[in-house]
Write a protein that binds this DNA or RNA. Structure first.
Length: 920
RNA sequence: GCCCGCGUGGCGGAAUAGGCAGACGCACAGGACUUAAAAUCCUGAGAUGUAAAAGUCGUAUCGGUUCAAGUCCGAUCGCGGGCACCA
């Protein structure tokens, strides 16, 4: 493996030696430590999404983002910025708890072991984290503040008028409530808090014996580990994130995030505007309100559908239909999330026997229950318009209900089908004639969909039949897990049915150690905490009333919602972050991580910041100004003819280009020795035996090569395929630089010349490199930055000897990418300490960047026909004349020029292309 | 089904704002050095064509705008990601 690194003095033993040396130097001297910025000091806050430290350690894919941010930070540092670049551990979570259950050991033990391993690997790579600011979300000194924030939100309500959270004491209590006494007032407050209890259906996972969040349920209706999820009503702690729907949506506009993440959040929030309209009950029965975004189709309503789990169902169902409806309601309630989703397309339902009246036509409309209508969206009731909604169409077909066409498109074939009731039409069309008086009063016939929608909507609102409303798809956040390994929720439920919060002074409310170290859930959906009876049972010292602590813990997202704040002031025991310190750093300037948190962490975190800002707890409103999502790293995986997955390092490529199992491997089978294995690529995973560990790569090639290689493969945001055998090009580049600087000297550096004696071209090339690096690092295109380094080396390597200044500048420009080597060379050049604190080289002045003659392309009538050398200082007219002369010479005939265009490079102003349009 | 993104040599990728497509690297071939190999250095290469040139074709496909299109517009196909009965 190590035969690639064999050139010059840049060989593996030397690399290992100096990398170890500098690693010790950096971390022992704490050179990456940062201090709170002083007034007027330039600062930069760069944050990596902190990892959950799993037992497997880092594979080579994880550091893509870490190295990307590290290069950026080192570059910023060299530009005089005070850089905050911290790292910590999102350490609560299921794997550690499962391990603890199995081993009968407190989960903090394995958590610590795993995190230490991650830290070791990160230091191996040379990441410039300030480890003095390391945090664990599981540390009581940390989760004390998570609980503190929880209490702030619990003791707050959302003022719709002001569109902001306010302390619960400021909640206006209606006179009618006040008259009913203290208990009524308290209950009223509880319905308004940002944190509240709610009996609601949750995703219940029987296998894990816990509740999981919507975003943890995959598209197939299972958890990410494949366990089945069913619906179950439970009393849950929830957070009122929906109150912030509008602000979360609007806030996106100001953020420098990828459009795709913003769009995912927009879709998740799911804002829709429509009309809520009342269908009057018949025979004295209740009215039903529906929400629709297509009020213009109200003329085509042939039925109404309500969600089976709405309370109103039992009030409207007729005696004759009761049996059928009851059975349907029961069946849908039992159906798992998965079954429900599998049913897409096939419509089922039951008739309630009840009728309502269409407010515009007066028609009697039958009411059905069907599970394709969701209780939580709008009013949980929709108007069935079979001809203009594909779901309603399917339902109408299944139940043999009327299909009333209203709009048809120009296309005659389609129009015919719509009129025949053979298909639903959901796009633009013209309104058909109708005998309804209101329809004709509004003169809808012949008008388009949108125009009709406006006319009908306004009519409905003016006549007080309905109102314009806005709906959101987003639901409130179920903020509880029936698990042990999470932050305890600081609430107490008393025997009189009231709930109080733990006093701030009692925080942190720490997790109790459980008897016999038994961390398995207590069953019945209760977390393992139920077993800590001493901890759970509380008695009010004043009244003697008994109570029980909330048994569920916070979801894993809790700690990560606010962690950027804590890094600024990690040891503050008086407050989560000193406001002055928060002001000094501001919010995160650059946040780097994967896309998998698009609608979870990144949304929850924004929600907490907004609420905390409203309540005056923190100063900033948005956590992350710029977000970069690194691409996924995949790796090849090999499968033998027998279907066995072969580990990546036990496969070799033969001359025919195919891959075979290496002789001597335990997977080697004599009969198959000439049967190629198939190659696929996939995310690194144990089961595919394609995991590459950075420890191994660094052992074989050094950390600098690992860093540069990983960054050279593709832009940070793109996916990439790891293939160790391609690392040779990177090693070669670094060794060429090494040779240029050292010149073959054992401990010193190459022979140098005075600056004036150096080849003029060198200055030009260094300036080109410098400008290119600045540009590429800023937009995080490290692959082209490394290319620029390569080009520069190619262009100057034959121009030695160099000045010492040149050698120094090269080392400094290399430093963010390959810091170990840069520091070693820096020392060889006679400097004390490391490059981390050095200034990035300035562009050299008085360097002639322009050659005397330049080569230009000439196109005739849009087609390239020749290249021409011209003096670089010619004016456009002279260029044209020269070009036309050259063309005429080539053709041997005069040219009738119609038009001529001289294109100059935007930056240099040099002629690039000349295009001549001539008569043929 | 809907939304978003992307299709460039054998491969990873470059072309930042419509201006010489294929930079740079990997892999490959030839040469130098070497007893030999490795390493290193030099040279070559989109396809087609030619003795070599010239020429022709070429950024998924078809069409359009433009003096000029990988880049802009329209349609089609393919791949990747997200959402998924949200009325």
């Amino acid at each position: 493996m190590d035969d690639i690194v064999k050139t010059s003095g840049y060989n593996l033993s030397a690399i290992t030696e100096f990398e170890n040396k500098w690693r010790k130097y950096w971390y022992r001297n704490n050179i990456f430590r940062s201090q709170t910025p002083k007034p007027g000091e330039k600062s930069f806050y760069c944050l990596d999404m902190f990892p959950y430290p799993s037992g497997a350690g880092l594979h080579v894919g994880h550091p893509v983002g870490y190295i990307a941010s590290d290069i950026y930070c080192r570059y910023k540092r060299m530009h005089g910025f005070n850089v905050l670049h911290p790292m910590g551990w999102d350490a609560f979570g299921l794997p550690a708890e499962r391990y603890a259950v199995k081993m009968h050991e407190h989960p903090s033990v394995v958590t610590k072991v795993n995190a230490e391993n991650y830290k070791r690997q990160m230091q191996l790579i040379g990441l410039s984290y300030d480890w003095d600011r390391e945090i664990y979300t599981t540390d009581p000194e940390y989760y004390k503040w998570t609980q503190y924030i929880f209490l702030k939100l619990y003791n707050a309500w959302f003022d719709e008028e002001q569109q902001k959270a306010r302390p619960i004491e400021e909640l206006p209590i209606p006179e009618s409530v006040r008259l009913q006494g203290a208990k009524a007032v308290s209950d009223y407050k509880n319905t308004k808090r940002l944190v509240y209890y709610d009996y609601s259906e949750v995703n219940w996972c029987p296998a894990l014996n816990t509740v999981v969040a919507n975003e943890e349920v995959m598209a197939d209706g299972r958890t990410e580990h494949g366990y089945e999820v069913v619906k179950k009503a439970m009393k849950q702690v929830k957070m009122r994130i929906t109150a912030y729907a509008d602000r979360l949506l609007q806030g996106l506009e100001k953020l420098d995030w990828s459009e795709s993440i913003k769009e995912q959040q927009r879709v998740w929030i799911g804002k829709t505007k429509g009309v809520q309209i009342v269908f009057r009950g018949t025979n004295g029965g209740p009215d039903i309100e529906v929400f629709t975004t297509h009020i213009e189709t109200i003329w085509g309503v042939s039925f109404l559908v309500i969600a089976p789990d709405l309370d109103i169902v039992k009030d409207i169902v007729t005696p004759e239909q009761k049996a059928e409806v009851d059975e349907y309601v029961k069946k849908t309630a039992l159906a798992s999330e998965k079954q429900r989703k599998m049913n897409t397309g096939e419509k089922t339902g039951a008739f309630t026997g009840y009728y309502v009246e269409n407010p515009l036509t007066g028609d009697k409309v039958p009411v059905y229950v069907a599970d394709y209508v969701l209780k939580d969206h709008g009013t949980g009731a929709v108007m069935g318009v079979a001809s203009h909604d594909s779901r309603d169409f399917d339902f109408a077909v299944a139940k043999n209900l009327a299909i009333i066409p209203l709009f048809v498109p120009k296309d005659a074939e389609i129009a015919k089908k719509i009129l025949a009731g053979e298909m639903a039409w959901e796009e633009e069309g013209k309104a058909l004639p109708n005998t309804n008086p209101v329809y004709n009063e509004l003169q809808l016939e012949g008008k388009g969909l949108k125009e009709c929608a406006e006319l009908v909507g306004n009519y409905v609102v003016e006549h007080k039949l309905g109102k314009f409303i806005t709906c959101f798809k987003m639901r409130d956040w179920v903020f509880a897990r029936q698990r042990y390994w999470g932050e305890p929720i600081p609430l107490i439920n008393w025997e009189d049915g009231t709930t109080t919060s733990v006093a701030e002074s009692e925080l942190p409310l720490t997790l109790p150690v459980l008897p016999d170290n038994d961390y398995a859930p207590a069953g019945d959906g209760k977390s393992a905490l139920a077993k800590a009876t001493d901890w759970v049972q509380v008695t009010d010292p004043v009244t003697g009333m008994k109570g029980e602590r909330e048994l569920s813990t916070m979801p894993q997202w809790a700690g990560s919602c606010w962690y950027p704040l804590r890094y600024m002031d990690p040891k503050n025991s008086d407050y989560l972050v000193d406001p002055a310190v928060e002001d000094a750093w501001g919010s995160v300037d650059l946040y780097i991580g994967g896309t998998e948190h698009a609608t979870s962490h990144l949304l929850y975190s924004r929600f907490w910041y907004l609420a905390l800002h409203d309540l005056g707890v923190i100063r900033t409103e948005e956590p992350f100004k710029r977000l970069i999502n690194q691409g996924m790293l995949t790796s090849y995986a090999y499968r033998s003819a027998r279907g066995v997955i072969i580990p990546i390092d036990e496969v070799e490529q033969r001359e025919d280009g195919n891959y075979y199992v290496t002789a001597g491997s335990e997977f080697y089978v004599e009969e198959d020795k000439d049967v190629p294995v198939t190659r696929e690529y996939a995310k690194m995973s144990k089961s595919l035996r394609n995991v590459v560990n950075p420890d191994d790569v660094i052992r074989d090639y050094g950390a600098d090569s690992f860093r540069v290689f990983l960054m050279s493969m593709a832009p940070v945001t793109d996916g990439r395929i790891w293939d160790t055998k391609n690392i040779g090009g990177t090693v070669k580049l670094l060794s060429r630089i090494w040779d240029i600087i050292t010149g073959g000297s054992e401990t010193g550096y190459a022979e140098t010349v005075a600056e004036e004696a150096e080849n003029k071209e060198v200055s030009k090339q260094l300036n080109i490199l410098n400008a290119k690096l600045a540009e590429d690092i800023e937009r995080m295109k490290y692959n082209t930055a490394i290319t620029a380094l390569n080009i520069c080396i190619n262009n100057i390597s034959a121009l030695k000897p160099f000045s010492k200044k040149t050698l120094e500048e090269l080392v400094l420009m290399l430093s963010p990418f390959a810091p170990y080597m840069a520091d070693e060379l820096w020392q060889r050049l006679g400097h004390e300490g490391c490059t981390y604190f050095e200034k990035w080289p300035a562009l050299r002045e008085n360097v002639n960047m322009i050659d005397e003659t330049i080569n230009i392309a000439v196109t005739l009538n849009g087609k390239k026909c020749l290249n021409l050398d011209i003096a670089s200082d010619l004016k456009d007219d002279d260029v044209k004349a020269a070009v036309i002369q050259a063309l005429e010479e080539k053709q041997g005939a005069p040219l009738t020029v119609i038009k001529s265009i001289v294109v100059r490079d935007r930056k240099s102003g040099m002629v690039n292309i000349v295009n001549i349009v001539a008569k043929r």
